[in-house]
Design a protein around this nucleic acid. Structure first.
Lengths: 212, 212
DNA sequence: AGCATATACGGACTGCTGGTCCGGTTATGG
DNA sequence: CCATAACCGGACCAGCAGTCCGTATATGCT
Protein backbone atom coordinates (compact mmCIF):
# COMPACT_ATOMS: atom_id res chain seq x y z
CA UNK A 1 0.00 0.00 0.00
CA UNK A 2 1.70 3.11 -1.24
CA UNK A 3 0.54 6.11 0.75
CA UNK A 4 -2.75 7.21 2.12
CA UNK A 5 -4.49 9.95 0.15
CA UNK A 6 -4.48 12.47 2.98
CA UNK A 7 -0.80 11.82 3.53
CA UNK A 8 0.00 12.64 -0.07
CA UNK A 9 -2.15 15.75 0.06
CA UNK A 10 -0.40 16.94 3.18
CA UNK A 11 3.02 16.26 1.71
CA UNK A 12 2.23 18.54 -1.17
CA UNK A 13 0.72 21.17 1.10
CA UNK A 14 3.85 21.18 3.23
CA UNK A 15 6.18 21.53 0.28
CA UNK A 16 4.10 24.38 -1.10
CA UNK A 17 4.08 26.10 2.27
CA UNK A 18 7.83 25.78 2.58
CA UNK A 19 8.31 27.20 -0.91
CA UNK A 20 6.05 30.07 -0.04
CA UNK A 21 7.88 30.93 3.15
CA UNK A 22 11.21 30.63 1.41
CA UNK A 23 10.11 33.00 -1.32
CA UNK A 24 8.31 35.52 0.85
CA UNK A 25 10.50 35.64 3.93
CA UNK A 26 14.16 34.78 4.16
CA UNK A 27 15.44 31.23 4.37
CA UNK A 28 15.86 31.40 8.13
CA UNK A 29 12.16 32.06 8.52
CA UNK A 30 11.38 28.59 7.28
CA UNK A 31 10.81 27.16 10.73
CA UNK A 32 8.89 23.96 11.15
CA UNK A 33 6.17 25.61 13.20
CA UNK A 34 5.60 28.19 10.51
CA UNK A 35 5.63 25.66 7.70
CA UNK A 36 3.16 23.50 9.56
CA UNK A 37 0.90 26.44 10.33
CA UNK A 38 0.92 27.74 6.76
CA UNK A 39 0.31 24.26 5.38
CA UNK A 40 -2.59 23.84 7.78
CA UNK A 41 -1.21 20.70 9.35
CA UNK A 42 0.27 19.79 12.70
CA UNK A 43 3.96 19.96 13.34
CA UNK A 44 4.18 16.24 13.84
CA UNK A 45 2.99 15.71 10.29
CA UNK A 46 5.89 17.67 8.89
CA UNK A 47 8.28 15.43 10.76
CA UNK A 48 6.54 12.23 9.81
CA UNK A 49 6.76 13.19 6.13
CA UNK A 50 10.27 14.59 6.00
CA UNK A 51 12.07 13.39 9.07
CA UNK A 52 13.71 16.67 9.87
CA UNK A 53 14.27 20.17 8.71
CA UNK A 54 17.12 19.01 6.53
CA UNK A 55 14.85 16.37 5.06
CA UNK A 56 12.30 19.00 4.12
CA UNK A 57 14.86 21.22 2.46
CA UNK A 58 16.32 18.23 0.72
CA UNK A 59 12.95 17.27 -0.67
CA UNK A 60 12.49 20.80 -1.97
CA UNK A 61 15.88 20.81 -3.61
CA UNK A 62 15.34 17.36 -5.01
CA UNK A 63 12.06 18.46 -6.50
CA UNK A 64 13.74 21.32 -8.30
CA UNK A 65 16.55 19.28 -9.72
CA UNK A 66 14.91 15.96 -10.50
CA UNK A 67 14.46 16.88 -14.14
CA UNK A 68 18.11 17.70 -14.54
CA UNK A 69 19.11 14.52 -12.80
CA UNK A 70 17.11 12.44 -15.24
CA UNK A 71 18.26 14.41 -18.25
CA UNK A 72 21.83 13.75 -17.21
CA UNK A 73 21.31 10.06 -16.65
CA UNK A 74 19.05 9.07 -19.55
CA UNK A 75 18.32 12.12 -21.64
CA UNK A 76 19.60 13.06 -25.07
CA UNK A 77 22.98 14.73 -25.60
CA UNK A 78 24.51 17.08 -24.77
CA UNK A 79 23.18 16.64 -21.22
CA UNK A 80 22.80 12.92 -21.45
CA UNK A 81 25.34 10.34 -22.57
CA UNK A 82 26.63 10.56 -26.11
CA UNK A 83 28.23 13.97 -26.42
CA UNK A 84 31.91 14.65 -25.75
CA UNK A 85 32.67 15.05 -22.05
CA UNK A 86 33.51 18.72 -22.22
CA UNK A 87 30.23 19.49 -23.95
CA UNK A 88 28.29 17.46 -21.45
CA UNK A 89 30.00 19.25 -18.60
CA UNK A 90 29.29 22.63 -20.08
CA UNK A 91 25.67 21.78 -20.69
CA UNK A 92 25.34 20.37 -17.21
CA UNK A 93 26.82 23.40 -15.50
CA UNK A 94 24.57 25.62 -17.52
CA UNK A 95 21.54 23.86 -16.12
CA UNK A 96 22.80 23.46 -12.60
CA UNK A 97 23.71 27.13 -12.61
CA UNK A 98 20.23 28.03 -13.71
CA UNK A 99 18.75 26.06 -10.87
CA UNK A 100 21.11 27.70 -8.41
CA UNK A 101 20.28 31.14 -9.70
CA UNK A 102 16.59 30.50 -9.27
CA UNK A 103 16.94 29.00 -5.82
CA UNK A 104 19.74 30.81 -4.09
CA UNK A 105 17.81 31.23 -0.86
CA UNK A 106 16.92 27.57 -0.74
CA UNK A 107 20.55 26.77 -1.38
CA UNK A 108 21.65 28.88 1.56
CA UNK A 109 19.11 27.37 3.89
CA UNK A 110 20.11 23.88 2.86
CA UNK A 111 23.80 24.56 3.33
CA UNK A 112 23.31 25.95 6.78
CA UNK A 113 21.08 23.08 7.81
CA UNK A 114 23.24 20.31 6.38
CA UNK A 115 26.55 21.62 7.59
CA UNK A 116 28.60 18.54 8.31
CA UNK A 117 27.06 15.80 6.29
CA UNK A 118 26.85 17.82 3.10
CA UNK A 119 29.35 15.48 1.48
CA UNK A 120 27.33 12.37 2.24
CA UNK A 121 24.13 13.78 0.80
CA UNK A 122 22.99 11.54 -2.08
CA UNK A 123 22.25 14.55 -4.20
CA UNK A 124 25.71 15.98 -3.66
CA UNK A 125 27.27 12.62 -4.37
CA UNK A 126 25.43 12.37 -7.65
CA UNK A 127 26.48 15.79 -8.90
CA UNK A 128 29.99 15.21 -7.70
CA UNK A 129 30.23 11.85 -9.38
CA UNK A 130 28.95 13.24 -12.64
CA UNK A 131 31.34 16.18 -12.72
CA UNK A 132 34.29 14.10 -11.63
CA UNK A 133 33.62 11.46 -14.27
CA UNK A 134 33.37 14.01 -17.05
CA UNK A 135 36.47 15.85 -15.90
CA UNK A 136 38.42 12.64 -15.60
CA UNK A 137 37.39 11.57 -19.05
CA UNK A 138 38.62 14.80 -20.51
CA UNK A 139 41.68 15.26 -18.31
CA UNK A 140 42.84 12.04 -16.66
CA UNK A 141 45.99 13.83 -15.53
CA UNK A 142 44.16 16.22 -13.20
CA UNK A 143 42.69 15.50 -9.78
CA UNK A 144 39.12 15.19 -10.96
CA UNK A 145 37.78 14.29 -7.53
CA UNK A 146 39.07 17.45 -5.96
CA UNK A 147 38.18 19.67 -8.88
CA UNK A 148 34.62 18.39 -8.77
CA UNK A 149 34.46 19.42 -5.12
CA UNK A 150 35.86 22.78 -6.13
CA UNK A 151 33.24 23.38 -8.77
CA UNK A 152 30.46 22.38 -6.41
CA UNK A 153 31.90 24.48 -3.58
CA UNK A 154 31.23 27.51 -5.68
CA UNK A 155 27.50 26.78 -5.61
CA UNK A 156 27.12 28.70 -2.39
CA UNK A 157 23.76 30.34 -1.91
CA UNK A 158 25.15 33.63 -0.71
CA UNK A 159 27.69 33.78 -3.51
CA UNK A 160 25.07 33.00 -6.11
CA UNK A 161 22.85 35.72 -4.73
CA UNK A 162 25.72 38.22 -4.76
CA UNK A 163 26.45 37.53 -8.38
CA UNK A 164 22.90 37.44 -9.65
CA UNK A 165 21.56 40.85 -10.56
CA UNK A 166 18.59 41.82 -12.71
CA UNK A 167 20.80 43.24 -15.44
CA UNK A 168 23.05 40.18 -15.60
CA UNK A 169 21.01 37.28 -14.28
CA UNK A 170 23.35 34.57 -15.55
CA UNK A 171 26.66 35.94 -14.46
CA UNK A 172 27.15 33.17 -11.94
CA UNK A 173 26.55 30.42 -14.45
CA UNK A 174 28.84 32.04 -16.97
CA UNK A 175 31.60 32.22 -14.40
CA UNK A 176 31.24 28.60 -13.39
CA UNK A 177 31.21 27.38 -16.97
CA UNK A 178 34.23 29.45 -17.70
CA UNK A 179 35.98 28.02 -14.65
CA UNK A 180 35.37 24.49 -15.87
CA UNK A 181 36.46 25.36 -19.38
CA UNK A 182 39.65 26.93 -18.09
CA UNK A 183 40.45 23.86 -16.04
CA UNK A 184 39.91 21.53 -18.96
CA UNK A 185 42.02 23.70 -21.23
CA UNK A 186 44.91 23.94 -18.78
CA UNK A 187 48.23 22.64 -20.10
CA UNK A 188 49.57 19.34 -18.85
CA UNK A 189 51.62 20.01 -15.75
CA UNK A 190 55.27 19.53 -16.82
CA UNK A 191 55.36 16.29 -14.84
CA UNK A 192 53.56 14.89 -11.90
CA UNK A 193 56.61 15.03 -9.66
CA UNK A 194 55.97 16.64 -6.34
CA UNK A 195 58.33 19.53 -5.82
CA UNK A 196 59.04 20.23 -2.18
CA UNK A 197 59.34 23.95 -1.72
CA UNK A 198 61.64 25.62 0.74
CA UNK A 199 58.54 26.72 2.58
CA UNK A 200 57.34 23.25 3.57
CA UNK A 201 57.20 23.05 7.27
CA UNK A 202 58.66 26.46 7.83
CA UNK A 203 55.88 27.95 9.87
CA UNK A 204 55.00 26.42 13.19
CA UNK A 205 51.69 24.66 13.26
CA UNK A 206 48.98 26.34 15.27
CA UNK A 207 49.62 25.70 18.93
CA UNK A 208 46.22 24.28 19.60
CA UNK A 209 44.61 22.11 16.98
CA UNK A 210 41.13 20.84 17.15
CA UNK A 211 40.16 17.19 16.84
CA UNK A 212 43.69 15.85 16.48
CA UNK B 1 42.00 53.86 29.17
CA UNK B 2 42.58 50.62 27.29
CA UNK B 3 40.88 47.79 29.15
CA UNK B 4 40.53 46.86 32.74
CA UNK B 5 42.78 44.08 33.95
CA UNK B 6 39.97 41.68 34.87
CA UNK B 7 38.35 42.26 31.51
CA UNK B 8 41.53 41.26 29.71
CA UNK B 9 41.93 38.22 31.93
CA UNK B 10 38.38 37.14 31.20
CA UNK B 11 38.81 37.65 27.47
CA UNK B 12 41.72 35.25 27.48
CA UNK B 13 39.92 32.77 29.69
CA UNK B 14 36.96 32.75 27.33
CA UNK B 15 39.09 32.21 24.26
CA UNK B 16 40.92 29.36 25.94
CA UNK B 17 37.67 27.79 27.02
CA UNK B 18 36.28 28.02 23.52
CA UNK B 19 39.43 26.44 22.11
CA UNK B 20 39.16 23.68 24.62
CA UNK B 21 35.56 22.90 23.82
CA UNK B 22 36.26 23.02 20.13
CA UNK B 23 39.12 20.57 20.47
CA UNK B 24 37.50 18.19 22.94
CA UNK B 25 33.92 18.12 21.73
CA UNK B 26 32.65 18.89 18.26
CA UNK B 27 32.19 22.40 16.95
CA UNK B 28 28.47 22.42 17.66
CA UNK B 29 29.15 21.86 21.34
CA UNK B 30 30.67 25.30 21.59
CA UNK B 31 27.58 26.89 23.06
CA UNK B 32 27.83 30.15 24.90
CA UNK B 33 26.63 28.67 28.15
CA UNK B 34 29.28 26.00 28.03
CA UNK B 35 32.02 28.41 27.10
CA UNK B 36 31.04 30.72 29.92
CA UNK B 37 30.87 27.88 32.40
CA UNK B 38 34.23 26.44 31.39
CA UNK B 39 35.83 29.86 31.45
CA UNK B 40 34.41 30.45 34.91
CA UNK B 41 32.59 33.63 33.94
CA UNK B 42 29.00 34.65 33.46
CA UNK B 43 27.29 34.40 30.13
CA UNK B 44 26.90 38.15 29.93
CA UNK B 45 30.64 38.53 30.00
CA UNK B 46 31.08 36.44 26.91
CA UNK B 47 28.68 38.69 25.09
CA UNK B 48 30.22 41.89 26.35
CA UNK B 49 33.61 40.75 25.09
CA UNK B 50 32.65 39.25 21.76
CA UNK B 51 29.22 40.54 20.88
CA UNK B 52 27.86 37.23 19.69
CA UNK B 53 28.69 33.68 18.95
CA UNK B 54 29.98 34.68 15.54
CA UNK B 55 32.15 37.32 17.18
CA UNK B 56 33.71 34.73 19.43
CA UNK B 57 34.47 32.35 16.60
CA UNK B 58 35.80 35.23 14.57
CA UNK B 59 38.14 36.22 17.35
CA UNK B 60 39.41 32.68 17.54
CA UNK B 61 39.97 32.49 13.83
CA UNK B 62 41.56 35.90 13.79
CA UNK B 63 43.94 34.85 16.54
CA UNK B 64 45.05 31.85 14.51
CA UNK B 65 45.65 33.77 11.33
CA UNK B 66 46.96 37.08 12.55
CA UNK B 67 50.56 36.05 11.93
CA UNK B 68 49.84 35.11 8.36
CA UNK B 69 47.96 38.32 7.80
CA UNK B 70 50.94 40.35 8.90
CA UNK B 71 53.42 38.25 7.00
CA UNK B 72 51.40 38.83 3.89
CA UNK B 73 51.09 42.55 4.41
CA UNK B 74 54.56 43.50 5.68
CA UNK B 75 56.69 40.40 5.87
CA UNK B 76 59.56 39.30 3.68
CA UNK B 77 59.02 37.51 0.36
CA UNK B 78 57.72 35.15 -0.78
CA UNK B 79 54.74 35.76 1.51
CA UNK B 80 55.17 39.50 1.68
CA UNK B 81 55.56 41.95 -1.17
CA UNK B 82 58.55 41.55 -3.43
CA UNK B 83 58.29 38.11 -4.94
CA UNK B 84 56.52 37.34 -8.23
CA UNK B 85 52.78 37.06 -7.83
CA UNK B 86 52.60 33.35 -8.55
CA UNK B 87 55.20 32.62 -5.90
CA UNK B 88 53.42 34.79 -3.39
CA UNK B 89 50.15 33.06 -4.12
CA UNK B 90 51.68 29.64 -3.76
CA UNK B 91 53.37 30.57 -0.50
CA UNK B 92 50.17 32.12 0.78
CA UNK B 93 48.01 29.12 0.00
CA UNK B 94 50.56 26.88 1.63
CA UNK B 95 50.17 28.78 4.87
CA UNK B 96 46.43 29.29 4.68
CA UNK B 97 46.07 25.60 3.96
CA UNK B 98 48.12 24.76 7.00
CA UNK B 99 45.90 26.89 9.17
CA UNK B 100 42.80 25.28 7.68
CA UNK B 101 44.17 21.79 8.24
CA UNK B 102 44.89 22.58 11.84
CA UNK B 103 41.53 24.18 12.49
CA UNK B 104 39.00 22.37 10.39
CA UNK B 105 36.47 22.15 13.20
CA UNK B 106 36.74 25.83 13.94
CA UNK B 107 36.30 26.50 10.26
CA UNK B 108 33.10 24.47 10.15
CA UNK B 109 31.66 26.15 13.20
CA UNK B 110 32.47 29.56 11.80
CA UNK B 111 30.91 28.81 8.44
CA UNK B 112 27.73 27.57 9.97
CA UNK B 113 27.46 30.54 12.30
CA UNK B 114 28.29 33.18 9.71
CA UNK B 115 26.09 31.83 6.96
CA UNK B 116 24.87 34.88 5.10
CA UNK B 117 27.36 37.58 5.86
CA UNK B 118 30.41 35.44 5.20
CA UNK B 119 31.28 37.63 2.25
CA UNK B 120 31.25 40.83 4.27
CA UNK B 121 33.52 39.44 6.95
CA UNK B 122 36.67 41.61 7.12
CA UNK B 123 38.83 38.54 7.32
CA UNK B 124 37.27 37.03 4.24
CA UNK B 125 37.57 40.32 2.41
CA UNK B 126 41.25 40.48 3.20
CA UNK B 127 42.03 36.99 1.95
CA UNK B 128 39.86 37.51 -1.07
CA UNK B 129 41.48 40.81 -1.92
CA UNK B 130 44.93 39.32 -1.60
CA UNK B 131 44.24 36.33 -3.79
CA UNK B 132 42.37 38.36 -6.38
CA UNK B 133 45.17 40.91 -6.60
CA UNK B 134 47.83 38.25 -7.09
CA UNK B 135 45.75 36.37 -9.63
CA UNK B 136 44.97 39.55 -11.53
CA UNK B 137 48.62 40.51 -11.60
CA UNK B 138 49.55 37.18 -13.10
CA UNK B 139 46.52 36.72 -15.34
CA UNK B 140 44.72 39.98 -16.09
CA UNK B 141 42.66 38.14 -18.70
CA UNK B 142 40.91 35.91 -16.19
CA UNK B 143 38.09 36.79 -13.79
CA UNK B 144 40.29 37.15 -10.73
CA UNK B 145 37.43 38.21 -8.47
CA UNK B 146 35.46 35.08 -9.14
CA UNK B 147 38.45 32.78 -9.06
CA UNK B 148 39.44 34.17 -5.68
CA UNK B 149 35.97 33.29 -4.41
CA UNK B 150 36.43 29.86 -5.92
CA UNK B 151 39.70 29.23 -4.16
CA UNK B 152 38.29 30.39 -0.85
CA UNK B 153 35.11 28.38 -1.32
CA UNK B 154 37.24 25.28 -1.18
CA UNK B 155 38.29 26.11 2.37
CA UNK B 156 35.26 24.34 3.76
CA UNK B 157 35.75 22.82 7.17
CA UNK B 158 34.10 19.54 6.33
CA UNK B 159 36.01 19.20 3.08
CA UNK B 160 39.30 19.94 4.78
CA UNK B 161 38.55 17.35 7.41
CA UNK B 162 37.67 14.79 4.77
CA UNK B 163 40.93 15.30 2.98
CA UNK B 164 43.17 15.44 5.98
CA UNK B 165 44.35 12.03 7.14
CA UNK B 166 47.25 11.06 9.37
CA UNK B 167 49.16 9.48 6.52
CA UNK B 168 48.74 12.46 4.21
CA UNK B 169 48.16 15.46 6.43
CA UNK B 170 48.77 18.05 3.74
CA UNK B 171 46.72 16.66 0.95
CA UNK B 172 44.24 19.49 1.10
CA UNK B 173 46.89 22.16 0.83
CA UNK B 174 48.57 20.38 -2.04
CA UNK B 175 45.30 20.24 -3.92
CA UNK B 176 44.55 23.90 -3.40
CA UNK B 177 48.01 24.98 -4.48
CA UNK B 178 47.76 22.80 -7.50
CA UNK B 179 44.39 24.29 -8.33
CA UNK B 180 45.83 27.79 -8.25
CA UNK B 181 48.83 26.75 -10.29
CA UNK B 182 46.61 25.14 -12.90
CA UNK B 183 44.50 28.26 -13.16
CA UNK B 184 47.52 30.50 -13.61
CA UNK B 185 49.00 28.19 -16.20
CA UNK B 186 45.80 27.97 -18.24
CA UNK B 187 46.08 29.12 -21.84
CA UNK B 188 44.60 32.42 -22.88
CA UNK B 189 41.00 31.81 -23.92
CA UNK B 190 40.87 32.18 -27.73
CA UNK B 191 39.04 35.45 -27.37
CA UNK B 192 36.72 37.01 -24.88
CA UNK B 193 33.71 36.81 -27.13
CA UNK B 194 30.69 35.34 -25.46
CA UNK B 195 29.43 32.38 -27.44
CA UNK B 196 25.74 31.80 -27.07
CA UNK B 197 25.08 28.09 -27.02
CA UNK B 198 22.01 26.46 -28.38
CA UNK B 199 21.17 25.53 -24.83
CA UNK B 200 20.67 29.06 -23.55
CA UNK B 201 17.17 29.42 -22.33
CA UNK B 202 16.13 25.98 -23.39
CA UNK B 203 14.99 24.67 -20.06
CA UNK B 204 12.16 26.41 -18.31
CA UNK B 205 13.15 28.29 -15.22
CA UNK B 206 11.99 26.82 -11.94
CA UNK B 207 8.33 27.59 -11.52
CA UNK B 208 8.76 29.19 -8.17
CA UNK B 209 11.83 31.28 -7.54
CA UNK B 210 12.77 32.63 -4.18
CA UNK B 211 13.58 36.29 -3.54
CA UNK B 212 13.01 37.52 -7.04
C1' DA C 1 -23.09 -0.57 3.75
C1' DG C 2 -20.61 -1.46 7.82
C1' DC C 3 -16.59 -2.77 10.31
C1' DA C 4 -11.74 -3.47 11.92
C1' DT C 5 -7.44 -1.73 11.89
C1' DA C 6 -3.39 0.11 10.17
C1' DT C 7 -2.20 4.58 9.29
C1' DA C 8 -1.94 9.35 9.87
C1' DC C 9 -3.13 13.44 12.53
C1' DG C 10 -2.36 17.52 15.74
C1' DG C 11 -0.40 20.24 19.03
C1' DA C 12 1.20 20.18 23.78
C1' DC C 13 5.65 19.23 25.60
C1' DT C 14 10.79 19.01 26.23
C1' DG C 15 15.43 20.52 26.24
C1' DC C 16 18.37 23.60 24.47
C1' DT C 17 19.85 27.66 22.06
C1' DG C 18 21.53 32.68 21.27
C1' DG C 19 20.87 36.87 23.19
C1' DT C 20 19.19 40.62 26.85
C1' DC C 21 19.14 43.03 31.21
C1' DC C 22 20.03 44.94 35.53
C1' DG C 23 21.27 45.00 40.56
C1' DG C 24 25.46 44.27 42.70
C1' DT C 25 30.75 44.28 42.58
C1' DT C 26 35.41 45.84 41.74
C1' DA C 27 39.36 47.88 39.58
C1' DT C 28 41.41 52.25 38.99
C1' DG C 29 42.95 57.25 38.87
C1' DG C 30 43.21 61.09 41.69
C1' DC D 1 41.11 56.32 50.73
C1' DC D 2 37.34 57.46 47.91
C1' DA D 3 34.25 58.25 43.85
C1' DT D 4 32.86 56.29 39.91
C1' DA D 5 33.04 54.26 35.60
C1' DA D 6 33.68 49.86 34.03
C1' DC D 7 32.66 45.34 34.64
C1' DC D 8 30.45 41.19 36.42
C1' DG D 9 27.06 37.17 36.99
C1' DG D 10 23.28 34.63 36.11
C1' DA D 11 18.20 34.93 35.95
C1' DC D 12 15.43 35.67 32.19
C1' DC D 13 13.25 35.61 27.42
C1' DA D 14 11.69 34.17 22.93
C1' DG D 15 12.30 30.85 19.58
C1' DC D 16 14.01 26.67 17.75
C1' DA D 17 14.15 21.41 16.29
C1' DG D 18 12.42 17.38 17.47
C1' DT D 19 9.26 13.87 20.41
C1' DC D 20 5.04 11.67 21.92
C1' DC D 21 0.63 9.86 22.39
C1' DG D 22 -4.43 10.05 22.58
C1' DT D 23 -7.57 10.76 18.86
C1' DA D 24 -9.46 10.67 14.21
C1' DT D 25 -9.84 8.76 9.65
C1' DA D 26 -8.91 6.45 5.21
C1' DT D 27 -8.89 2.00 3.41
C1' DG D 28 -9.74 -2.90 2.23
C1' DC D 29 -12.58 -6.59 3.32
C1' DT D 30 -16.86 -8.78 4.04
Amino acid sequence: MPERADAARNRRAILRAAERLLADQGGDHVTLDRVAALAGVGKGTVFRRFGSRVGLLNALLEERSRTLRQAVADGPPPLGPGAPAHERLDAFLDELGRIAEGNATLLSAHEQACAEDKYSDPSYLFWHGHIAALLAEERPDLDAEFLAHTILAVFDGALVRRMTTPDDPRRFTRSVRSLATTLIAAPRPDTGRRVATERDGRWPAATIRDRP
